[in-house]
Design a protein around this nucleic acid. Sequence first.
DNA 1: GTCTATAAACAGATAGAC
DNA 2: GTCTATCTGTTTATAGAC
Lengths: 214, 214
Amino acid sequence: MTDTSGTTSSTRDMLIDAALYLFGTKGFDATSTRAIADRAGANVASIAYYFGGKAGLRQVCIETVASRIKDVLAPFDRAPWPETPEAARAQMHATLQAFVEFIVGAPAASNFMDFILRELSEPGVVVNYLYNQIVLPRHARYCALWSIATGQPAESEDVKLTVFALIGQVIYFRLAGPVITQRMGWSAFGPKQIKTLTRVLSQSLDASISRNHT
Amino acid sequence: MTDTSGTTSSTRDMLIDAALYLFGTKGFDATSTRAIADRAGANVASIAYYFGGKAGLRQVCIETVASRIKDVLAPFDRAPWPETPEAARAQMHATLQAFVEFIVGAPAASNFMDFILRELSEPGVVVNYLYNQIVLPRHARYCALWSIATGQPAESEDVKLTVFALIGQVIYFRLAGPVITQRMGWSAFGPKQIKTLTRVLSQSLDASISRNHT
DNA sequence: GTCTATAAACAGATAGAC
DNA sequence: GTCTATCTGTTTATAGAC
C-alpha cells in the first residue's frame, strides 16, 4: 500500500478510529489508553508518541470529526441561494432529509456521531470548537433560509429558537435511539424507518412554515 | 430534627445528592468515591457501608430520580381525560409548558436532569428501567391526547414519531443548553427565556395539530 | 455508624532497547 | 517507529479500631 500523501500514518489512523469508537461508546474517562491501543493493534506507548498523551488524542479526534462532518455537509452549504419562498422551503426539506439520513441513519458515520453527542454534554474548549466550526455557520444559514421561506426576520429570537428546535428533533432521535426503536417495535433505524421518520418531520416542518408564512 | 419515617438517613441522603450532582456533571466514571464523600461531608467508607459500593450508589440514584420525576409529573397524569379536540389540545399545551419549565428551566431539579441525560446515552438495565417507569406510560398518554386532538389513530407510526419529536425538542434545549444560550446571546435559561421558548414551541405544536386535524 | 489505614488493582506517562 | 518494563499516582474496596 503506497502512501501518496507523503506521511506514513497507518497506525496513527488506526488509533484515531479506535479512540473515536471507544470514546463514543464508553466515554472518555471510562476508556483506558490500553484499550485503545489493543483495539488499534498497536502499543500503549504509541499514543504518547503520536499525540503526546490521552488528551492530545481526544483533541485530534475532535478535529477529525469536525473535518469529516464539514465534508459531508459541504454540498448543502454550496447550494445556490434561493430567491423565492418556495425555493427556500424546498432547500430546507432537502437539508432536513440529509440531516436525518446522516445523523440518525449514519451507518458508517456511527462512530463519530456517538463521539460528538458525548462531547456535547460537557462545556469547555471542545464544545466551543465544534460550535464555531459546525453549529454557528450552519444555524445562521438555516435561519436565513427560514426567513426567505416565511418573511420573518432571520435573526429574531423566534426564528433562531425554531431552527434549534428543528435540529433538536433530529439529534434526539439519534440520542434516544434505543428507547425510540423499542417503543416503535423496530429493530433499528434502517432505510425504511428513516424514510418514515423523514416524512413525519417534513410534514411538521411544512406545518410550521405555512403557519408562519405571512 | 426528628425523623418520623423510622430510619436515620441523613448522611445516606447527603451521599445520594452528592452523587447525583457529580455523576450528572462529570459522569459516572470520572467521579471518584472520594469526591462524593467529600461533597457529602462524609467518609469514603460510608459508601460501601450504605450502598455496597460505587455501583450500588448509582443504582440508588437511578431509583431516586425515577421516583422524584414521577412525583413531579403525577398531577398531569391525573388530569381529567378530555372529551373534545379543543380540550385535548389545551391539555397538550399545558403539559408542554410544564415539560419546558421542568426540563429546561429546572432550577432545583437541575441535578437529576443532568444525571438522566448521561445515563440515557448508554443502553442497558438503566435505560430499560427508566423506559418502563417513565417514558412508555407518558408517551402512550400523549399519543392518546394527540389522537383526540387530531382524529389520527393513537398508535399509528406517524403519531408515535410526532410525539417523540415533540419530547425531543424539549430534551434538546436542555442537552445543548450551553451552545444554544451562547447563540441566543442569553446568559442562561431564566424565567424570561423559558417563557419565550414555551411560546415558540407552543406555536409549533399548534401548527402541527392544525395541519393534521381532519 | 463513623472513622483511619491499607491492600490490590489500575491509570497515564516515560525511559531506553532495538 | 515500535516495543518492553517500570515509575508514580489514583482508584475502589476492605479490615479493624473506636
